[in-house]
Computed example of a mutant assay.
Amino acid sequence: MHVEARKITIIIHFGFIAVLSSIKTPSANAVELVGSMALSGGHKDRELRVHESLDELSTDLADYIAELSEASVKERGVFAIALSGGSLIGLMGKLCEAPYNKTVDWAKWYIFWADERVVAKNHADSNYKLAKDRLLSKVPIIPSHVHSINDTVSAEEAADDYEFVIRQLVKSRVISVSDISDCPKFDLILLGMGPDGHVASLFPNHSALEEKDEWVTFITDSPKPPPERITFTLPVINSASNVAIVATGDSKAEAVHLAVDDVGSDSPSVPAGVAQPLKGKLVWFLDKAAASKLEGSQFSA
């Protein structure tokens, strides 16, 4: 299934780039960049995985999720994972195939949404419907472990209801609690990224980015339809044990550059650039097109 390929490991530290090694690896056509850069006076460590093809990215993403699931179930007995919508769900599709469909302990999964459109569950715009059709209906997840939003109320009420559900599951330790705040500590939050650099439903220059007290907030003026949405806030995203951001295609390249490279205060910031677990790990999954504007991207050829 895998073929040998050259792997280049690059350390990015305060903007300086050094090629450390070039070795053979069974992970086909993958270029891995490991980043360590300044943030708020400290350091943030993140891993960037750049792949030649969407198929290789999808396989690596499935491996990553399956490994985190196994580790979490071994440690806590459950795996609390929050999803987003869009192309991310399609890229998770290999989890429905062998070996993952048999080896993952699906009964221990608890599913949440990092953001959701406030539409009926059978609506084409529903992140729940997308995940159910392409993933959840194809693996033996326990239905009561799937926590979708209340789609019969307003966006504000849906956000309040969803936060209440999460608070109850934090009390029962289905979801861990952060040891540096009162926020929930999800085992994994999976995020896609838009061409404008938004993650979840946190859009550039939107007031929702500033929300510090609520775990789940709502918006009624999304710059992309549908306008009404609920979303995890940045404190919740940044309290997770693991966050993965998946971005593919040329249209994402500039936003990836702004989010990942140390571009300075004169450049526009994007929400994806402030998604960074305070005591967890951030991994970016990129194809070469999305990574094409990264500093040092000449090493990915």
Rank of each mutant, 00 (worst) to 15 (best):
S297P: 15
G249M: 00
A159I: 03
L282G: 15
K129R: 14
I141T: 10
K44I: 14
G35V: 06
L54I: 02
V236N: 04
R76S: 09
T59E: 06
S297C: 13
L169T: 02
H51T: 03
I10H: 15
V260R: 02
I149H: 12
S222F: 12
S53D: 02
A131Q: 06
M37R: 10
T217I: 07
N238M: 05
S58N: 03
V243G: 13
E56A: 09
L20Q: 11
L202I: 06
V263M: 10
S265L: 09
D161V: 04
Y110L: 06
E210A: 15
P26F: 06
R76E: 15
G93H: 12
A301T: 08
P204V: 04
V78E: 11
L169A: 08
D45I: 09
T220H: 09
L188W: 03
R117N: 08
S241R: 05
F232M: 02
N205P: 03
K288V: 00
S222G: 11
S137G: 11
A289M: 00
P268R: 01
D105E: 10
E70A: 11
A5F: 13
A290L: 01
I189H: 04
I180Y: 13
P227D: 10
I166A: 09
A80G: 15
L209R: 01
R49P: 15
I11T: 12
I65A: 07
W113A: 07
L188P: 15
H145Y: 04
L169I: 05
W109L: 09
S269V: 07
W113G: 10
D221N: 11
P26E: 07
S172M: 10
V19K: 14
D45M: 08
A247R: 00
V263G: 12
I245K: 00
V246P: 15
V270M: 04
C183S: 13
D261I: 03
H51L: 07
V50L: 06
A208D: 05
Q298M: 01
V73I: 13
G273A: 14
S172Y: 08
V119R: 06
L88V: 08
D182R: 02
L39A: 11
D196R: 00
S154I: 09
W109G: 08
A259Q: 02
A259K: 02
K108A: 15
L209G: 10
L83W: 10
V50M: 04
E47D: 15
K171I: 03
L61Y: 08
V139T: 14
V146T: 15
G35L: 04
